[in-house]
Simulated scan of single mutants.
Amino acid sequence: MPGGITVSAQSVPAEARPLVIAVDGPSGSGKSSVSREVARRLGLEYLDTGAMYRAATWSVLEAGVDLTDAPEVAQHVRDLDLTMGTDPSAPGVRVRDHDVAAAIRETAISTVVSKVATNLEVRAELLKRQRDLIQAARVGTHQGVVAEGRDITTVVAPDADVRILLTASEEARLARRAKELHGTADAASVEATRDQIVRRDSDDSTVSNFEVAADGVLHLDSSALDFEQTVDAVLAAITRIVTGTVTDLDDSDRTARAGAVS
């Protein structure tokens, strides 16, 4: 990577490891792609908790369970045979013997995943599994984990070593997701993407707070940053938090550092 800020696992004091880094934020903020790259560069495991809800949704639909039957959906998820890969270079997702990593990203899942994600019994079940996966990444030969998704910083891992709320303006988030899904961010593509971003965030906000940083959670606005700049900003923030040189960033500091990354 030319220029920018270079941070590696060696930048983090040994006594602070294994690290748990929690990244929260709304749809399209970049939390998944950024978290995965941060995990890769730091040599940590990677956990995409949103993929767990998507996989559960895929399985519910595959089984023909009525999404409006909350108790039945919850029971199906409790019985779900779900395996989450945590290698940031290849974080697979398997339901029973099915590789669903690609299938769970399809529009058919994106448009209904909130129906499963807002089921409180489903959230309770997946919360337990998420905590188990995070704990597993703390032991053995693992160096830790970057876990991202709804409620990570406040409910799933409130004791994480680093907690970051990664946000971006609605305009920036719509443009990013449109480009990801349609290859362009023209007006038509943005409008075709709006439901997945705006409506899903509205639905999920009924059971989760991912737009305002809780106490002790660092807020990073990536609206004006590209992917590499956002990764660099997150890596720099992790180093500064773990080494005790910062507990929060204000807007002026964030802007100054973002402008310095090139």
Rank of each mutant, 00 (worst) to 15 (best):
V60L: 01
T49R: 04
D195I: 10
F210C: 02
Q75G: 03
R40Y: 02
A56I: 00
P26D: 09
E106Y: 09
A117V: 03
A63Y: 00
A101S: 15
V34C: 06
R78P: 01
E62C: 04
H142V: 01
E171P: 07
T118M: 04
K179D: 08
H76W: 03
R163N: 08
D24G: 04
T57W: 02
S222M: 12
T86P: 04
L80N: 00
T49K: 04
A188D: 15
K128W: 08
A124H: 14
A16M: 10
E72T: 15
R199F: 08
V155A: 09
A168E: 10
V242W: 04
A102R: 15
K31D: 04
L44T: 01
D87K: 03
A124P: 08
H142W: 02
A192W: 10
T68R: 12
T86C: 10
A63F: 01
H98M: 11
D87A: 11
L218A: 11
A16N: 13
I5G: 06
V139L: 10
V145D: 01
A157Q: 15
G259K: 13
I241S: 13
D79S: 06
A14M: 07
R163E: 07
I197G: 05
L166S: 04
A175Q: 15
A70D: 10
S202E: 11
A172C: 10
V246S: 10
F210I: 07
R150K: 05
D48S: 06
T167R: 13
E125V: 15
A237D: 11
D69C: 09
S29C: 05
L225F: 15
T243D: 11
V155D: 04
T206W: 08
N209F: 12
S89M: 09
S114E: 04
R41W: 13
S223M: 14
V100N: 01
S110G: 08
R41K: 15
I134F: 01
L44M: 03
R41M: 13
S252T: 12
F227V: 12
D161W: 08
I134K: 00
L127H: 14
S27E: 00
H76I: 00
E106D: 08
V77I: 03
G216M: 01
S222I: 15
V155Y: 04
G149H: 04
G216W: 03
S262G: 10
Q196A: 13
S29T: 04
E72D: 09
D69V: 13
K128M: 09
E121W: 14
G85L: 01
E125M: 11
D251Q: 08
D253G: 06
L42I: 07
L220D: 07
M52I: 00
R199C: 06
P88M: 02
I5P: 06
V100P: 00
L80R: 00
V198W: 06
S252H: 07
T239I: 08
V198N: 07
Q143S: 14
S114P: 01
P91E: 03
P18M: 13
H142Y: 03
A233H: 11
E211R: 13
T107I: 14
S33C: 08
D253A: 12
E170S: 14
A124D: 15
I109W: 01
W58E: 00
I104R: 03
A51H: 05
D151I: 13
V261C: 06
V112L: 00
S252M: 08
T6R: 14
I197N: 05
V139K: 09
G4S: 14
A168W: 14
K31T: 03
A16R: 15
R257Y: 14
T83M: 09
L19D: 12
